[in-house]
Design a protein around this nucleic acid. Structure first.
Lengths: 187, 187
DNA sequence: AAACTTACTTACTAATTAGTAAGTTTCCAA
DNA sequence: TTGGAAACTTACTAATTAGTAAGTAAGTTT
């Protein structure tokens, strides 16, 4: 993998563990075994790096949801939850939560691109829920859009609560989501 | 109000808007119209200030839940939601979400005290839900503890999503929570 | 009135930060 | 084989950061 991609990968991990303001070019440089200025060569300033991290997340999400969309809705839901579970296992939060809590003091463009990501995720999950409801695989009383907001917020804050209260909280939230959708016998 | 309390109040607001790492002693000093060192007089270092902010939040929460516990369960739930709504109106996130997303790089004591706060909130809401279920005011299929985790995560991440996607998202989440509890005709 | 405390200010240090400018190495293409 | 671009390093700057030490003014206690 090329250095540019490695920088983006490390930056994303740092944002999801310490937050955007808390990580420095030095952190990335040290981990890559290069000098500070090498990071500046690839990303002139921190704002550009931050935006590129969100942009990369959008691309990866687009690829992921395109691939997933060919699967049955139940698999799509479980795999969606697993995306968050993977973060939990590394004690990370999701990118949206990590940036949203600091967004007031961040470059506006980061907020705008994050909105695009959040809306894409919400739209995708809404469709999955709608199809699942129609096919009687999921059961819920709210609209698919509203239910999508509820589930996304469960997962996002589930990661945050798990950091503070322990990993079992995420498991409780995950099984709660599925129970409320009347989904049983998974994995 | 004395200076110490004012510092804590400003610090909490800054944590809930920009995050712990992003605010400086200078930010507080400027807003109070005093010099940098005046803040250090009251809180020798940033770690002590951070812990004091969480400690104050625990005290305020204890007072609030004690007062609320005399009300009917439906009022208790609606007032609990209103605590988050108040944050939303100022474009802030909740203290737990704000700190949890950065907790990996923060003084361990802050994480420990935040855990106490989070557990107290969860215990309180669990009791409210349990009583409400028993009295058939709320309806839900999971355990009260599990439902409490779901609702807390809805509200915490609801604030974060509202920052990125707009305030209507918080409203959607709020009405979704109530609908799933079969609570109608509120306010 | 003297001693002491509270709540600061002034003036500083050391470390870290993002960011830049100029030079260097390595590889590839004409 | 020479020219140039890509990917750096070296060496620096300016700003911001947390934190400290010494001094001061106002009030409070003895």
């Amino acid at each position: 993998m090329d250095t540019r991609s490695q920088i983006l990968q490390i930056a994303e991990r740092l944002i999801k563990t310490k937050g955007y303001t808390a990580f420095s070019y030095h952190d990335i440089a040290q981990e890559l075994g290069v000098k500070n200025a090498a990071i500046h060569y690839h990303f002139t300033n921190k704002e550009l790096l931050g935006i590129a991290v969100v942009e990369r997340a959008i691309q990866q999400w687009d690829a992921y949801r395109t691939r997933l969309s060919k699967e049955p809705v139940l698999i799509q839901l479980l795999e969606f939850i697993n995306l968050y579970k993977a973060n939990q296992q590394e004690r990370q939060v999701c990118l949206i939560g990590a940036i949203a809590t600091q967004v007031t003091g961040l470059p506006p463009t980061m907020g705008m691109r994050l909105q695009v990501l959040a809306e894409s995720i919400h739209t995708y999950l809404s469709h999955v829920l709608e199809e699942g409801k129609q096919k009687e695989i999921f059961s819920f009383e709210t609209s698919p859009s509203q239910k999508a907001f509820l589930i996304i917020s469960n997962l996002a804050a589930g990661l945050q609560l798990a950091r503070v209260m322990g990993p079992q909280v995420f498991q409780e939230i995950k099984s709660g989501i599925l129970k409320e959708l009347s989904v049983y016998n998974y994995e």
